[in-house]
Nucleic acid binder design. Sequence first.
DNA 1: ATTAATTTAAGAATCATTATCAAAACACAG
DNA 2: CTGTGTTTTGATAATGATTCTTAAATTAAT
Lengths: 135, 135
Amino acid sequence: MKLSRTVQRKVIVDELRKLKCHPTADELYEVVRKRLPRISLGTVYRNLEVLSASGEILRLGVGKKQMCFDGDTSRHYHLVCRCCGAVEDIMPGDMGGVEKELDSKLAGRILEVSVNFSGYCEKCASLVKRNAQLS
Amino acid sequence: MKLSRTVQRKVIVDELRKLKCHPTADELYEVVRKRLPRISLGTVYRNLEVLSASGEILRLGVGKKQMCFDGDTSRHYHLVCRCCGAVEDIMPGDMGGVEKELDSKLAGRILEVSVNFSGYCEKCASLVKRNAQLS
DNA sequence: ATTAATTTAAGAATCATTATCAAAACACAG
DNA sequence: CTGTGTTTTGATAATGATTCTTAAATTAAT
């Protein structure tokens, strides 16, 4: 699928870049509507989707629609795969001195149990690498 | 509101602790249903809510129902406030050598733009601290 | 300009989550 | 234990964010 350059798409990116906050789709919709009063909310959603897929903008959060839970409240982290959505545990031992530095830099404001990373799980990371070599 | 110890609540915690994955509410519902066939999905949701509020279990993700977006794709991080939901930028400069260490530990699998922390924003952190002193 | 592919607007549909409410389970004082 | 007030449950309805559908409009590539 080729990406066309439409007025709507351009305004959406443009307004999102201008904002210093991290708006939800409908918040951005309200902003964009000032320039394009006839744009629909669906168009905003559709474009945020393709734009984040292509890397032009960021989508924050775990990337899954559903919330998920963990019964293990001991100190550990999570890597949420951007590709397949898998949630992988990262144990403190895997992280060297990162924790101590985070603690000192953010002065205890980080909840020990809820640091979430987003990236690729091992399986998808190798898939991505393989695809990169092919193209 | 006092927390009663109900069979349902105990089984929910118990099964969640036994699972090594990070289930969604309905996935956990299916597991719990094997022990309590008459439990309702609403009960699972309600309990996951109060249990994560009391710290007995973890709720993964940004904690907001809505997805949010960022037009700035430069390398930076986000702190999502567990208390008010505010999303705060954390710039690489604020983090000392943390990034380099993360890069080496996770071998480039972390997407540079999407590391999300969860904790308290400055405002809520001071509120929490104040409340702690009062009690 | 012609034509094929993509995108749009509007609204309907989906589906995760939350709210409602009467009945059941629980806590606790006596 | 037993009554009484509180909390929780199950069933279901309601909500609300997101996705889907469709015909018409726009865009890209001849």
